[in-house]
Design a protein around this nucleic acid. Sequence first.
DNA 1: CTGTTGGTAGAACGTTCGTTCTCTCTGGTG
DNA 2: CACCAGAGAGAACGAACGTTCTACCAACAG
Lengths: 187, 187
Amino acid sequence: MVQTMTTESPRERLLRTANELFYREGINSVGVDRILSEAGVTRQTMYRHFAGKEALVVAHLELEDRTIRGYFDAASAQASDPKDLMRLIVEGIAADATTYHTRGCPFINAAAEFPDPESPVRAVVDAHRAWFRDTLAHAAKQAGRRDPKRVAAALVLLRDAALVGVYLDDPKIVARAFKDTALTLVT
Amino acid sequence: MVQTMTTESPRERLLRTANELFYREGINSVGVDRILSEAGVTRQTMYRHFAGKEALVVAHLELEDRTIRGYFDAASAQASDPKDLMRLIVEGIAADATTYHTRGCPFINAAAEFPDPESPVRAVVDAHRAWFRDTLAHAAKQAGRRDPKRVAAALVLLRDAALVGVYLDDPKIVARAFKDTALTLVT
DNA sequence: CTGTTGGTAGAACGTTCGTTCTCTCTGGTG
DNA sequence: CACCAGAGAGAACGAACGTTCTACCAACAG
């Protein structure tokens, strides 16, 4: 237990590799063998930690969910007041879309590949989107908006569009259009 | 050649079936056998008309492209003046998103499954989005906007979001948020 | 009448997929 | 020391994938 921080456990390597590959190349396009060889992990190890590929997909989305919630927690801690938080959220989304999530939204992409609404994958997608919407509505209410739900719905709309846009169109133009529209909305 | 209008040719059946299945269930999730059996067409017939599955995917997106362009032509013919056209476009997008394209945008979904930017599939996606952006910019300019490119970029953003939103969130709320935001933008 | 074209029917190809199995080795705990 | 959970190595499974092949049939044009 001394130097466990420097070396990644097989499970961590597996999840991190799956996270990258699923996002960058699409879920159905990436086979289990590919993940295993790139993570340097054997089949047995994977099936010991995850029930199957679908469970790995779910874990990948849950990891994305935790990461994004982390961004929000950081922004909340940094904000000087509720209105400043709204601005930080918009700026944070724009920064995320132009640096990390340049291949669209992992949840939207996953939903495109999993049409069954009852799928466990879709359940994670729904949960994340519900959290995001509620969090935005709460922040908008704190900032004194009389129509927090409307503001939240519009912001969700714009974030979806921004993430898709930086993937398929000119990132600079899209990021600017997003910030313009979103900032006028929240101020 | 007398009653060719009532009966669909095998090629037409094939393309229509592929179009529906690819959109509703995802491209990689739908196998060739599935399309063939549901279209009532044999393998030979398919490979006579299309080089392979990828060519069928391209044809599916080209069909979507033609359909959407048809909507625009119809709106252009119906509009009383350039400003009215802008309004008709927004209404048309909202109507399309809540009736036909309830599983997201076929081009965005396809791009999520084809990560290679050099893929023929991505070429069709890019071409469609370029046409859409240019058409919107032209319409905005006709309507007297001084910043047609900005308006077009924002409208593309909003349409992407609306199509995703009606798939993953409450269609009514999303359609309303879209129309609210888009109409204030174009007027 | 005779090709040729475009369709049906069905077997078969090689590959890849996700999954399961057996065997061995190592590191720590009882 | 004995034990066993966790990980590595690799074979093997059945199913599904996209694709190719052969054989037969109908319609139309020369």
